[in-house]
Design a protein around this nucleic acid. Sequence first.
DNA 1: CTGTTAGCGCCTTCAA
DNA 2: TTGAAGGCGCTAACAG
Lengths: 347, 347
Amino acid sequence: MDSALGTRPGAGRVTIGDVARVAGVSIPTVSKVINQRDGVAPATMLRVQQVVEDLGYETSLVARSLRSSRTGVVGILVPEFEPFSTELLRGISRAATGTGYELLAYAGLMTGADRPGWERRSLSRLSGTLIDGAIVVTPTTALSSSSIPVVAIDPHTGPEGHATVDADNEAGAVQAVEHLLALGHTRIAHLQGRADLASAQLRAAGYRSALTAAGIPVDECLLRDGGYQEDQSAAVARELLTLDDRPTAVFAANDSSAIGVLRAAAEVGLRVPEDLSVVGFDDVPQASTTTPPLTTVSQPLAELGSHAVQMLLTMLRGEPTTDHVRLPTTLRVRASTGPAQRPAPGR
Amino acid sequence: MDSALGTRPGAGRVTIGDVARVAGVSIPTVSKVINQRDGVAPATMLRVQQVVEDLGYETSLVARSLRSSRTGVVGILVPEFEPFSTELLRGISRAATGTGYELLAYAGLMTGADRPGWERRSLSRLSGTLIDGAIVVTPTTALSSSSIPVVAIDPHTGPEGHATVDADNEAGAVQAVEHLLALGHTRIAHLQGRADLASAQLRAAGYRSALTAAGIPVDECLLRDGGYQEDQSAAVARELLTLDDRPTAVFAANDSSAIGVLRAAAEVGLRVPEDLSVVGFDDVPQASTTTPPLTTVSQPLAELGSHAVQMLLTMLRGEPTTDHVRLPTTLRVRASTGPAQRPAPGR
DNA sequence: CTGTTAGCGCCTTCAA
DNA sequence: TTGAAGGCGCTAACAG
């Protein structure tokens, strides 16, 4: 009754063996037909194709990739699917359409302890060889010698070794802080991003240099770690906003953090932008759905993605590529920032 | 020089064989250690683990899945990565975190002729068995007998046979049209979606019934096919808007189509919402970034995704599930709709 | 406790 | 033109 073994075709997956049996030929012959290799009699070929059709046979990506090295699929490795990586995905998808490659986005969904190093793990698991090349999003480590071409987006430590694509994080941060300064803010806090990412360090550096350039000393109390995450940022922001000498503006390292700040402000009873100005970074689509809509530094996310595919495809073709692409950022002023009202409360 | 064969460890991917050789044990022993099977001497175990560490070995997902049936990976099959599917992905990702499963989103990127049937193809390629179960987004066909558990989101023909998750498309369409009617519009066009999807048919049905309920006869000239796509919709909308007796409002079958309409309106010189009201469907994040922000019927996209994973995980556990989940929609009024100004121009 | 043998589904020589 | 044999990296029986 429950003989779901390979005995009967029709039970479970159809394999090349099933096709061969039904067509009355050997497995290699079927293989040849499928892969358009010549050396098969026209009649046999037709018959086999018919059977393939009837049985609805498809070659197993798994089995094939174990044997031959080329699979025609590009891997995109992400820690999880959140707005940042999904926007990248859109750009990648658009740019890859029509190239003959398929896309395989893989999220290890690591949490806690084994989170760092996820990219090496995933890469290792897939590269032997489910995928011909990979785009790794926000790798936390150097992912040194990989057996396949790899392009990193927003990597660990800037352009070192492998091919990378990123935005001008430092300049973007400067834009954000200068905007706040122009509005009259002087107590500007910064919620830092993930310390293991170059982007976070560069944004912090931009924050510092803009402040310094304006002759404002950096108050280390106003620097906190939001880890690029909404919840963590909300918690940290709550502390920051209940300080005696609270900041009148916050530059968050990314939009998720900024959304966390917005939440914290509401909880603490601060109005945005009247009492508090908030600037984010990334310009993910949901940045404009917040109340109020978020002023943020816009990265061309989809373009970053499409540049990455193009680089990867070039590498896959064996042609030389530029190692590094850096795209500009632009400040997008929406409604979460306004003029500083009073010097500082409770003083 | 170029002996990238399996001879030297260190060249290319590290395999279980490399580990065995270096550790001085047999391959199955390494396998046992890796899979936490007992029957290995503590000393050997430690030594092997050390070597695994040193060499940075990771089991190949491909090879493992060829052999054993369970992989701990859930597949998400999408035609391409666009806002709709990436929002779903976010919900899926969030719901799958911490369950021990990893996510593998696969986009075949089919265009033109072989587009219909892509889901059967992809499913077949992956299910033998790279993935333990699959979530298929907007399948165009019945994907009947699959060897693994499958949940469909926004399927071909409603809840039939396999497990499905969708939103109440017909009620949503009624909400949209009633909103337009309440604003005084009577000439309301509808840009239909992909005919091969139940959602599109239901939205058209809702459009018709709302109109009929209001005592307004359906003018078939005002029904056009936008195919859920921006470009196609823009082209079709251009015709519609240059009609002598043009509509004063358009209900587009999804947000992409609505964005196409917005584009067409601008080209034709019509102001939104003064001269033309536009309503979309889905409420993808970018719906609020358009000018003007789009009034649309909101589907709980992320929730649809998370429901789908939960159903799938239940099936994977071998427990019984409800076959079908239908979530409610809500009208989100933004700025692309306004009162009908004049009966109709040029009359 | 360890190693040998087999085979997952496919593709690639190499003989027949 | 076709088929038999071998092997990709791994795991599941068994045998030693």
